[in-house]
Design a protein around this nucleic acid. Sequence first.
DNA 1: TCACATTTGTCCGTATGTATC
DNA 2: AGATACATACGGACAAATGTG
Lengths: 243, 243
Amino acid sequence: MESTDFTMIKPLNNKRTFEGVSDRLKELIFDGTFKPGQSLPSEHALAQSFQVGRQSIREALRVLEISGFITVRPGTGGGSVIEGTMLSKMAGMFLDTFKLHKVSLMDCMAARKIIEVSILDLVLENFDESDIEKLRENIRCARAHLSSGESTFEDNIEFHRILARSSKNDTFCIVIEALLAVYAEVRSKMTVTSKIINKKVLRIIDNHERLVEAIEARQNQVAIELLRDDLSFSEELVLSSAK
Amino acid sequence: MESTDFTMIKPLNNKRTFEGVSDRLKELIFDGTFKPGQSLPSEHALAQSFQVGRQSIREALRVLEISGFITVRPGTGGGSVIEGTMLSKMAGMFLDTFKLHKVSLMDCMAARKIIEVSILDLVLENFDESDIEKLRENIRCARAHLSSGESTFEDNIEFHRILARSSKNDTFCIVIEALLAVYAEVRSKMTVTSKIINKKVLRIIDNHERLVEAIEARQNQVAIELLRDDLSFSEELVLSSAK
DNA sequence: TCACATTTGTCCGTATGTATC
DNA sequence: AGATACATACGGACAAATGTG
């Protein structure tokens, strides 16, 4: 300790070093200094800029990585690339929360039913032709996969994603993404004989198609009933397999 | 490299070391090997157990920490304590997602209105006396804070949290927690003159009280209208201040 | 194909801050 | 107050991955 008074150049923040770094980097991403697609400086460069050790930088990057702000790749030209969306990480964390809190599947499916039906109201108010086209494309895709013997699981998930987007409300998109993650996790663990599932899958796709028609024709009540059917069917499927 | 064949003691996983560690620790928390309130072994002990360096352990712990699985405290007897809930971290990440995706406040408040009204249906089916008592206690608390000049902001947030819990559906609790985080963030940035806000706050509390009465009396339609009023009022408040 | 530079991934040794006893 | 145990942080070193000439 020399006599010169080092009146707190850093200790004024009670945060840990890596927290200060990750918070600062978050700010810079939020305010657009670093844009999606761009890369953050290398760990070494960041350590020099922030005047901290590389370990602190790494822990800060770890925070940003699992929060979904960046993806990190090794090697030349690699580094920390700023992501444009946090949706998948967000949904993943939602899933972890469900597991830790041991939320019942029944609760989750019930909530999903209620929320999706609510969303449908918004969809019926706000949809446009391109939404209908995306939904139809999804159905075509699902039929193609079905006939070639591939799984239509992802298509069915995507259908509900597109439906949520058609509401033109981003909040619902995020919420549905999270709920779908739970659904996807459960379904992915289901072992089903393809014979039985084939008939069921066809029913789901046909149901989706009728739903799209009802939406386009603005037959609100019909659409709501069809969506309820669809979700009840998924509910049954999941709850029965989960014993 | 000796001639003895090291047939993959580790490299069989393509994951990074800290990922393997954090995933394994997650499993151990999920399956109840480590229970909430308990502490993980110290970093040094973990490093020895996993046969990896401390830095890898640190990054793994960082992942678990910001995911909400553990909280870390320095000092003797400190360490990594397993948390019982990830709700606040979850809500925080939801907030980050909102910011990064630049979701409009209007969307968020609209979604909240729709979802909370949906929840009210469940509340009216499932509430019991203890829920009513908790809501009343919250209102008493809010009035006390109001008369002593303190902020009733947290009370108002808590009211909606309790309402969500009364639905007995954990999924909605999580979703509402996330939406409330967005609301809280916006409100916390609002600078309001206490004179004006006092009248508004009183109106909110009175409204909450009438809502509780309507729920208890099972006047479903009245309750729904009162909740809509309450949320519309919040919506106005937030949207006007946000320009 | 073969270096070579860059960047992340990992480990070690050491020192410091902090909370508990 | 002192000792202890722990997280926090730094710097150096080397390995592994990846793109470039």
